[in-house]
Design a protein around this nucleic acid. Sequence first.
RNA 1: GGGGAAGUCGCAUAGCGGCAAUUGCAACAGACUGUAAAUCUGUCCUCUUCGGAGUUCGGUGGUUCGAGUCCACCCUUCCCCA
Length: 374
Amino acid sequence: MHFDLLATSGKARAGLLHTDHGDIPTPIFMPVGTVGSVKAVHQRELTDDIDAKIILGNTYHLYLRPGTPSLKAAGGLHRFMGWQRPILTDSGGFQVFSLAENRKLSEEGCTFKSHIDGSRHVFTPEKVVDLQREIGSDIMMAFDECPPGESPYDYAKKSMALTHRWMDRCMKRYHETQPLYGHQQALFPIVQGCKYADLRRQSAEHAASHNAIGYAIGGLAVGEPTEVMYQMIEVVNAILPTDKPRYLMGVGTPANILEAIERGVDMFDCVMPTRNGRNGMLFTWEGTINIKNKKWEHCFDAIDPTSHALADRCYTLAYLHHLIKSEELLGLQIASIHNLTFYLELVRTAREHIIQGDYAEWKSKVVDKLSVRR
RNA sequence: GGGGAAGUCGCAUAGCGGCAAUUGCAACAGACUGUAAAUCUGUCCUCUUCGGAGUUCGGUGGUUCGAGUCCACCCUUCCCCA
């Protein structure tokens, strides 16, 4: 697996990440499919309509259910879920954050209480690499602690140090083990350091020292102000090697993504297009729509007449309003397909402008409209 | 014609002398960033300077310091027997 940086426009980068399951043009948005399913979206829609180039899975969730023995028996997650394109798995580090009440941290690792049945499980850096080998993701993530955005300096520093020791152990295990299914797997270390520039610098340097195939920036969009997030991205990207892809974990809104691309980020994932879509929020070039609002009741325009997705062209806003209000499953599907198609179109267009060399001008023209409420 | 039951804020419900009144649904709005989320939150009689103020529980009277709650009559609906 390797990365070709093809063009830059300011700090914005257009590249190609080559994997054994296909090439990924960057910047890219990766739909989140936590348990081996992008919620409410069929695999064929992911390829034919949305044209997702890579999707996410989650080690913690897949480990609990169906469990890696099942995935091994199936021949890995790709075969299990019938997905031929690349997969990135999060390590469970985010669950250290989001399931904070159900876990206990130690030097060795993290003890979790399953949110499904309350059973106890231990994740160590080594185990998380082994699990991701068994899952067979193309890109595996290091096991990290993702501290809350407003963590005090002392805690952030201690947490970062632990993440670094875990990162070293993950990389060691990675180099000691082999892929199980015949395709290459990368392991991305994760930069932490909260909102503190000096910690972010240290963390980026520590990660860079591993000479990994790619790098992730974690611990952002977890409660800190957006401007702080942008500053931290700049600090980190000034240090991470330019010839490797940079993945900003869990981000974000369309505007967040364009701003981060401008600061040199190549890869994104976020639950926002799918979760918010299921909750009635649509993203468009002219701003966001709450499709549940009464004002869409009689709007018989296509959801997006220029979209790649069939669902966007042949169904109207009024129909989607009706479906979501009626809690029809088709509404969740159409809203999710729409949002993911938009997110992929957003990064595809960004890439075009990077290659054209006018990214900053284009971005400043479109970014303000993206967060308008329609 | 005779007997019985019941009328509460869109609908359905709670309420048994201190009540602007319970709960669910619907409606209306908001939130959601490496998914414990097809979830969660708020508003939901009227007005409000958000402190309150004013009108409410089928109708009209009455008892009481005080009535959605007790009494009388009336209206309406449902059930049973003719």
